[in-house]
Design a protein around this nucleic acid. Structure first.
Length: 474
RNA sequence: UCCCCGGUAGCUCAGCUGGUUAGAGCGGGUGACUGUUAAUCACUAGGUCGUUGGUUCGAGUCCGACCCGGGGAGCCA
């Protein structure tokens, strides 16, 4: 337990101390960053210290008889880093069960200019905190986000592991565009000031690093399908890149996506998987991040905890796209965008369905063929595909998925209709030539999930370093 | 990319229809007081009002352009 050769006292995280892992009268080493300091002229100071292990701080009580009381303790300000050796004692004050009676305190790093240190014990705007992304982990809010993000990621892996899925690390660099649109980040080592050209005057990508055009992945789905049709149950969980000029609170240029892919499964199996998946992750977060969730319920979104519990307790509402259109048309609402069968649901329509009509997560299934991607399975009606979106109140689309087109002829025809070059996708068609089976999968935006869990409304506040159009600092 | 809104002290903001030396709270410093809890009280330091043109006797305030940020829309996860 004692890995610190500077002292004999075992290191104690703030979380362990407040959990009662160290008995009263034990001598421990506490390390962390000062949040607040209050001095008593009776001859001692209270120093609240946070080490990120939990939301709460540990209170140090430092007496004036310490050698460095005047020189160091009285000069501690928010953000100072310290190591302290002290005794666990029952607190004489209210607000905490135990505190540390300091035996020695060592300032590891003071704050150069306390007057301009950005993180103060006060409310800051999220916009301001984004401008100090390297310091915002020291705030209560971002610390809580960080712990919940970790727990949710862990819960996702746990869920799939329990269900017999394998985690597949699909490539970040890819030559294909899974969405069929020009929205990719180019990966190149060519000298942009001196681009090699072909005889025809085009850029000669044969001279580029990979000998062809390459991009950052927009989805691991196509690659993971190959493993699905061998391992049966697989998923990806990794960074994803979209070069869309989207300036909203729900879009990032770099985000993390979870994409399960299941063999021998249809759309009904998939929507059931999505529901179990979300419920499992929410339950895990509620169980393990109680303090952090209580913080969000108190400061950010009063319903943060209750709505997660409601999702866990209630079955998701299942709607056919056609049904959803009818509900919207009969709603009597004066929508800005008209509702018509054959057009995609607009944000205002999705919000009505999930926030007003159902007041719960909604699974909308079987969309018109024309508005969905080429790889989605054509239904027997010849007009719709076996696609589904899971819509969450306040967030909108959180999951998008489909049963995949496993029939070679139908897939080839759909690819041609979408103008996709068969050559780059021959390997994808191979999967339909050799032992094809019905299979299905979905994509979940990890940050959107975190927005829903925490109640934070901006996606830039649930990822450590947000990348958005015209913005990639730090 | 489109439509709105904004940019004043380290932070959060106020500053009316243009008018002398631009204000508050928090934070910082100093002092008082207290087993304190984002303590309290007093004093104090701190601002080329996003940039740049223009209108005017006079611009934080009005107009144009640009930069940056936010909200909404589209696209999507």
């Amino acid at each position: 337990m004692d890995t610190d050769h500077h002292s004999e006292a075992p290191k104690a995280s703030v979380k362990a101390l407040l959990d009662g892992a160290f008995p009263v009268n034990e001598t421990v080493t506490v390390e962390g960053w000062v949040r607040t300091r209050r001095d008593s002229k009776a001859g001692f100071s209270f120093v609240h210290v946070n080490d990120g292990s939990c939301l709460a701080n540990i209170q140090l009580v430092a007496n004036q008889d310490l050698d460095n009381y005047a020189s160091d303790v009285l000069r501690l300000t928010a953000g100072s880093a310290l190591r302290c050796i002290g005794t666990v004692v029952e607190s004489q004050g209210k607000g905490q069960s135990v505190e540390i009676q300091v035996q020695s305190i060592d300032v590891l790093g003071d704050v150069e200019d306390p007057d301009t240190y950005p993180i103060q014990p006060k409310k800051h705007s999220y916009e301001f905190l984004r401008s100090v992304a390297h310091l915002r982990p020291r705030t209560n809010t971002f610390g809580a986000v960080t712990r919940i993000r970790h727990r949710a990621a862990r819960a996702i892996h746990q869920f799939f592991d329990d269900m017999g899925y394998f985690w597949i690390n699909t490539p970040i660099i890819t030559a294909s565009d899974a969405e069929g649109a020009g929205q990719l980040f180019r990966v190149s080592t060519l000298d942009m000031m001196n681009l090699p050209q072909t005889d025809a005057g085009a850029i000669d990508y044969a001279q580029d690093f990979f000998g062809r055009e390459t991009f950052l992945t927009v989805s691991g789905q196509l690659n993971v399908e190959a493993f699905c049709l061998a391992m049966s149950k697989v998923y990806t969980f990794g960074p994803t890149f979209r070069a869309e000029n989207s300036n909203t609170s729900r879009h990032l240029a770099e985000f993390w996506m979870v994409e399960p892919e299941v063999a021998f499964a249809d759309l009904a199996d998939l929507s059931q998987l999505a529901e179990h998946f979300l419920k499992s992750v929410f339950a895990e977060v509620l169980e393990h991040c109680g303090d952090d969730m209580a913080f969000f319920a108190d400061r950010v979104e009063p319903e943060a905890i209750t709505r997660l519990q409601n999702v866990i307790d209630q079955p998701f509402v299942q709607l056919d796209y056609t049904e959803a259109v009818e509900i919207l048309q009969k709603s009597g609402r004066d929508f800005e965008h008209p509702v018509a069968w054959g057009t995609d649901l607009q944000t205002e329509h999705e919000r009505f369905l999930t926030e007003d009509h159902c007041q719960a997560p909604v699974v909308v299934k079987n969309y018109p063929d024309a508005i969905k991607a080429f790889y989605m399975r054509l239904n027997d009606d010849g007009q719709t595909v076996a696609a589904m979106d899971v819509l969450a109140p306040g967030i909108g689309e959180i999951i998008g998925g489909s049963q995949r087109e496993e029939r070679l002829e139908v897939l080839a025809k759909r690819m041609a209709q979408h103008g996709l070059d068969g050559g780059d996708y021959e390997w994808f068609l191979d999967l339909r030539r050799y032992g094809t089976v019905p299979h299905a999968g979905f994509g979940l935006g990890f940050e959107r999930l975190l927005n829903y869990i925490t109640g934070l409304s901006n996606i830039r506040d649930v990822i450590p370093y947000p990348r958005t159009p015209k913005s990639a600092p730090f």
